Simulated scan of single mutants.
Amino acid sequence: MVLSNKVIVVTGGASGIGYECVKAYIGEGARVAVLDVQRETMERLSAKPGNADLYLPCDVSDETQVKTAIAQVERHYGRIDCIHNNAGIAAPAKPLHETTVGEWQALMQVNVFSIYLTTRCGLAALQQSKGCILNTSSMVGRIGQANHAVYTATKGAVDALTKSMALDYATYGIRVNAVAPAGVWTPLLREWAAEQPDTADIETYLDGIHPLGYCPEADVIADACVFLVSEKARFITGCILPVGGGAELGYKR
């Protein structure tokens, strides 16, 4: 098992890509702590055998809550080997001028500011373990997306942060990478699909943007994440790894 006895913190790990990563990490021998705002979901998951043994309710955009949660993880496990910054929101589906100040702030706080908080609070532990940081980005951070200006801006920021963090923390032996999916069937994407005016055609559209021919479930992202946080990727840092079935290559027609 490539993650045997590694301690991994996953933000937004109660559903979607985060939950698939939690399961994959545990399957490879890791001990996982989940930080998420979905308290009821985490309570249900904690009752199931084989899931993470530490579920911490945490708003990752709140400094006090993040500081408290990271300290709890360190007390519980005695170390941290990896922080996977996966928590994110995508709504609303609007152009920039229609986005409210509150919506702008929420997207920036959850998708970008949270990475600052977990890094500040967890860096000392990662220095001791010579661990790694993994950020969940998105292909739209590179190419843009209509009616999602602020969301795409946050993912562009994640990409830039990942590269600069990789340079800053290499001196400590800490690797920093990001995974960049295209479409992935998660609760977040299903919510987005329901908001679109052409919901009947959205599944065909999502299949079509991936040259491999289908929009995947989140387990394909989790497999890539296992690699990036493992010693198999020990000489990889600053990488924004596209996992989009070739979507990053361009449209098929």
Rank of each mutant, 00 (worst) to 15 (best):
S4H: 15
S4M: 13
N5G: 06
K6P: 09
K6A: 09
V7Q: 00
I8C: 03
V9M: 13
V10C: 08
G12V: 08
G12T: 08
G13E: 00
S15V: 09
S15H: 10
G16I: 07
I17N: 15
I17C: 14
I17S: 13
Y19S: 06
C21W: 04
C21Q: 10
C21Y: 03
V22T: 03
V22R: 03
K23C: 08
K23A: 11
K23W: 07
K23Y: 08
A24E: 13
Y25M: 03
I26P: 07
G27N: 11
G27E: 03
E28P: 12
G29R: 14
A30N: 05
A30K: 02
R31D: 05
V32C: 00
V32E: 00
V34E: 01
L35W: 07
V37W: 11
Q38Y: 09
R39F: 12
E40S: 15
E40F: 10
E40H: 15
T41S: 10
T41R: 13
T41Y: 07
T41E: 12
M42G: 03
M42A: 04
M42W: 01
E43W: 04
R44N: 08
R44D: 14
R44G: 09
L45K: 08
L45P: 07
S46R: 13
S46V: 08
A47S: 13
A47K: 11
K48T: 05
K48C: 05
K48Q: 10
K48Y: 05
P49G: 09
N51C: 05
N51P: 02
D53R: 07
Y55M: 03
L56I: 15
L56P: 09
P57K: 02
P57L: 04
C58A: 13
C58E: 13
V60Y: 03
S61I: 08
D62R: 00
D62W: 01
T64E: 15
T64V: 14
T64H: 12
Q65I: 00
Q65G: 01
V66K: 00
K67V: 01
T68C: 10
T68H: 14
T68F: 14
A69I: 00
A69F: 00
A69S: 00
A71S: 15
A71L: 14
V73E: 01
V73M: 02
V73H: 01
V73Q: 03
V73D: 02
R75K: 15
R75F: 09
R75Q: 15
H76Q: 04
G78Q: 05
G78M: 04
R79E: 09
R79C: 06
I80D: 07
I80N: 04
C82Y: 03
I83Y: 11
I83S: 09
N85P: 12
N85D: 11
A87Y: 12
A87H: 11
A87Q: 10
A91S: 12
P92H: 01
P92E: 02
A93Q: 12
A93H: 12
A93L: 14
A93F: 14
A93M: 13
A93P: 06
K94C: 07
K94P: 07
P95I: 15
L96Q: 07
L96R: 09
L96A: 15
E98Q: 11
T99L: 07
T99Q: 04
T99V: 08
T100Y: 13
